[in-house]
Amino acid sequence: MAALADLEVRYQVDRERLEAWTGPEAIKMRFTAQLEEHHQREREPYVQRLADLHHRTMIIMGLHDTRLIT
């Protein structure tokens, strides 16, 4: 989760820098799109891993609850 949080902070900083940039709007839009694509590619493995961990946790909790009932 810390790696994902670091990614998000870097992305926010980069977006703020890009928004403050006074270059041509067309280039700014292209850079923004590239930044977004890069951000999504970078964060996907972390998001997938968190989803997997969540799923495993739910299975374990479900199994644990079943053992308590019997």
Rank of each mutant, 00 (worst) to 15 (best):
T22D: 02
V13R: 14
H64I: 04
T32I: 06
E25R: 08
I59P: 01
H39G: 07
G23R: 00
I27K: 13
I27M: 10
K28A: 03
E25C: 02
I60P: 01
M29T: 11
M61G: 03
E37T: 12
E19C: 03
Y46V: 05
P45R: 01
P24K: 06
A33T: 06
V47S: 00
L68H: 04
H64Y: 11
Y46G: 04
E25K: 08
E36C: 08
R43K: 13
R67T: 05
H38A: 12
M1G: 06
R67V: 08
E42T: 11
Q34F: 05
Q12Y: 06
I69C: 02
L7D: 14
E42H: 08
R15T: 12
E42K: 10
V47E: 10
D14Y: 14
E25T: 06
D6L: 06
R41H: 12
F31P: 06
G23M: 00
Q12A: 15
L4K: 04
I27P: 03
I27V: 09
M58D: 10
E19I: 07
E42Q: 14
L4R: 09
T66Q: 07
D6M: 09
A2P: 03
E25D: 07
H39F: 15
L68Y: 05
A3W: 07
Y11H: 14
V9Q: 15
W21V: 01
R67M: 07
L7P: 09
Y11E: 13
M1E: 08
L7V: 06
T57E: 12
M58P: 05
L7Y: 08
P45Y: 02
R41K: 11
D65Y: 03
H55S: 07
R41W: 07
L50C: 02
I60H: 03
T57Y: 09
A2C: 07
V9I: 10
H39S: 14
P24C: 02
A2W: 09
A3V: 10
V13D: 05
R43G: 11
E16P: 04
V47K: 04
M1C: 05
E16K: 09
Q34S: 08
A20R: 02
I27E: 15
I27D: 12
K28Q: 03
R30I: 09
D52I: 10
M29A: 14
P24G: 03
Q34E: 11
D6Q: 15
E36M: 08
L35T: 02
L18E: 01
Q48T: 15
I69V: 03
L4V: 03
L63Y: 01
A33S: 10
L50F: 09
H54W: 08
R10S: 13
D14N: 14
M61T: 01
G23D: 00
G23I: 00
M61A: 03
W21N: 00
I27A: 12
E19D: 10
H55W: 06
L63T: 01
L7W: 04
V9M: 12
L68K: 04
